[in-house]
Amino acid sequence: MCLAVPHRIVRVDGNEAIAEIGSIKKKVRLDLLEDVRIGDYVLIHAGFAIEKLSVEEAEDILDAWKEIEEAQNEG
């Protein structure tokens, strides 16, 4: 449950945003971070962005994350 997954922010509207991972888009809240912009990579947990990630690092780990999420959803 403490799983947080890297997403890219594609739209920002006040404290609400649309974040995407692969082809999946999700509505998320930005209330827990300062200054989130379009293009930022963030960790999403239970509908909230909880931390920003640097771009290279985020891209590097996205693939691995997708597998982890899939594995957890299999249950």
Partner: peptide
């Protein structure tokens, strides 16, 4: 509301 420090801030929100 269950969960640790990762989840609790969303409940506070």
């Amino acid at each position: 509301g269950v969960g640790f420090e990762t989840t609790a801030p969303s409940s506070a929100w």
